Simulated scan of single mutants.
Amino acid sequence: MSDIAASARTVLVTGAGGGIGRGICEVLAEEARASGRPLRLALHGSRISPALESLAAGLSGPLVEAWAFAADLTDTDAAAALVGAVTGWAGRLDCLISNAGQSRPGKLDSLSDAEWQQTLDLNLRATWVLARAARAALGESRGNIVAVASMSGLSPHPGYGAYSTAKAGLVMLCRQLAQEWAGQGIRVNAVCPGMIRTPLTESVYQDGETLRQREALVPLGRIGTPRDIANAVAFLAGENAGYITGVALRVDGGISDGMLNLIPGRPDKPAAAT
């Protein structure tokens, strides 16, 4: 244990090495230093890579201690052991941010059983396993869970049948946990990102025309950033959201509610001349 107080807030972030996960960790560290409240950050990856270790080292400093952990979250025992390792390291757990996931394309009639199961295991079942393992520690700290879902879990996403189904299940899982665990003071919420520009999606946005077309779909006129999602996650994970539980917060620039904007023939969008 470092010289950071044993009472320091402890947060586990899964999938910490990716674009959104990294953004979440950076925002949490910034908030800790700004508020003066010590923070322990447990950074999870499927393996302890040099990049994950570098992120942990870069975040560690005044008021913040970050450490890298590895686990295969599709393995029930490994996921539960991750929570045990984090609570053993820090002595407590105040927040679980379940961010790890995988967007697997594939129409429902073309997916193999293995592809279907792997998508649901990582995007849905892992959060349930982690939450179950963390319940006692979160009950002691009156902590909370924030899961990163997707706008694909709020509306069907053709061509991403397993992913959309898993994220829809994740939203309902959070609502269910929020009701079942509220009596223990545990809050559970979800964040549903829209189109976000991350290292994994960057190749798509290298095409200027694709970028322009996607931006045109978003009422706010731009593609989201990892920090947009991180700010929402940090809010729901923080004390200012202390009376919020069971919500699925859309962070999508308005696109989910903007589909009617695309219909030709509106007064401000006349139908094409024939």
Rank of each mutant, 00 (worst) to 15 (best):
R132K: 13
A81S: 13
P267L: 09
R92K: 11
L154H: 10
G161S: 13
A234F: 08
A162K: 02
S256F: 10
V146T: 04
L249F: 03
A136F: 05
A126Y: 05
V11D: 08
R33I: 00
Q184F: 15
W181C: 06
L111K: 09
G238E: 07
L82F: 00
P193E: 08
L262Y: 12
A241M: 02
A190P: 00
D121W: 14
L211N: 03
L28D: 04
V188D: 01
W128S: 12
A126V: 07
A51W: 09
A114N: 10
D72I: 02
D113F: 15
L55A: 07
V251A: 08
L217P: 02
A136Y: 03
S112Q: 09
D109Q: 14
A216W: 09
S35H: 06
A29C: 07
L55C: 08
L55V: 09
L260W: 13
P219I: 11
F69H: 10
L249V: 03
A190D: 00
A134F: 00
T74S: 08
G253R: 01
K269Y: 13
K167S: 07
T198N: 05
A29F: 12
T74Q: 06
V171A: 07
E209F: 11
A51I: 04
I145W: 00
G246V: 05
L130H: 01
G246N: 02
Y160W: 09
D252Q: 10
T245I: 02
G61C: 11
G106W: 09
G61P: 05
A16N: 06
L63N: 14
Q176K: 14
D252A: 04
P264K: 12
Q179V: 11
C192Q: 01
L200W: 05
A166F: 02
A90H: 02
V188P: 01
G194T: 02
N144M: 07
M172D: 10
I223S: 03
